[in-house]
Simulated assay, not measured.
Amino acid sequence: MSSAPEGKRLEEELSYPILIAERIRSAVDETDSFKLECSEVWKQVERLLQMLRTVVRFAATTPLYERPVRRVTAETAKNLERALTLVRKCKRRSILHRVVTIVSAADFRKVLSYLDASVGDMKWLLSIIDGESGSGINLALPPIASNDPILSWVWSFIGSIQMGQLNDKIEGTNELASLAQDNDRNKKIIVEEGGVSPLLKLLKEATSPTAQIAAATCLCYLANDLERVRVIV
């Protein structure tokens, strides 16, 4: 499974798309062509900016399940870069540069579709990191995982185990165990996406025997391969 590099601190990774969004704001102010289209781009970027700042606030106060945060943040940054490149082409420049740099309405439609996808991803992300809301596990499919629904379910279940209330932790663990039972690919995804650590933590917590049994069961399903056993122990 490909993912964003995890060498950076999460706060640093979140700061980059916020910086790009602010640059888009400045670039939109300097445009002299496609002003209406650029303003539509900014509307979507502004929504993303607000959601990114909300994630930053969560990250400052709550230990987040970082895998989906990093993946969504990296994809959002990529789409914001596309938007910035396009908007900058509409900046006041010489006649010669305008001839060389051709921008069309189709370019804006494409960029807006990318930004729409990022808005969908960020909405989904906020729903899973707000584990204290008591709204249950979100099984919606974010655009970033549209080609692999299992990935988004694994993220949602692990997120509920790590950040949810007790009932959500138990439900998420049971659902994760069900996925692990299905096939080895699911087991591999669960381990790669960081599922073992919150399961072990849940197993060691003495607050709920039901949760401990669920965690032990899920870990047993995962431990049918030597490499995965090494991760668990």
Rank of each mutant, 00 (worst) to 15 (best):
T76K: 00
T54N: 08
S146N: 08
P5Q: 13
S197I: 11
V103K: 03
L200N: 08
R9C: 05
V111Y: 03
N79L: 05
G120Y: 02
K187F: 08
T54E: 12
P17Q: 06
T73L: 07
I189W: 11
H97Q: 14
P198W: 02
S135P: 04
L199P: 04
V154Y: 02
F34L: 10
K201I: 11
G164R: 06
A4G: 08
A214K: 01
S133K: 10
I161Y: 04
E175A: 11
P149G: 07
S208H: 02
S33F: 12
V55N: 07
E193Y: 15
E40Q: 13
L166D: 09
T73S: 07
T173Y: 01
R9N: 11
V119S: 10
K78P: 01
G131K: 03
A140V: 06
A177Y: 03
A206F: 10
G159E: 02
L64M: 06
V119M: 08
F34V: 08
R53I: 05
S197C: 10
A60Q: 13
G172Y: 00
V55W: 06
K43N: 13
A214Y: 00
E30M: 13
S160C: 10
E66F: 04
T31V: 15
R98H: 14
R53G: 06
G159T: 03
K187V: 04
T207S: 14
D182L: 13
Q181I: 10
L203A: 14
I137Q: 04
I170Q: 05
G134S: 09
K169Q: 15
A180E: 05
P68R: 02
L80G: 00
P68D: 03
V191C: 06
G120K: 04
V41G: 02
A74P: 09
D32Y: 13
E13I: 10
R93C: 12
L202H: 03
Y16C: 04
G136I: 03
L14W: 00
L151D: 08
L166H: 06
E175H: 11
F108S: 00
Q44A: 07
E12V: 10
Q165A: 11
R67K: 13
R9L: 11
I18Y: 05
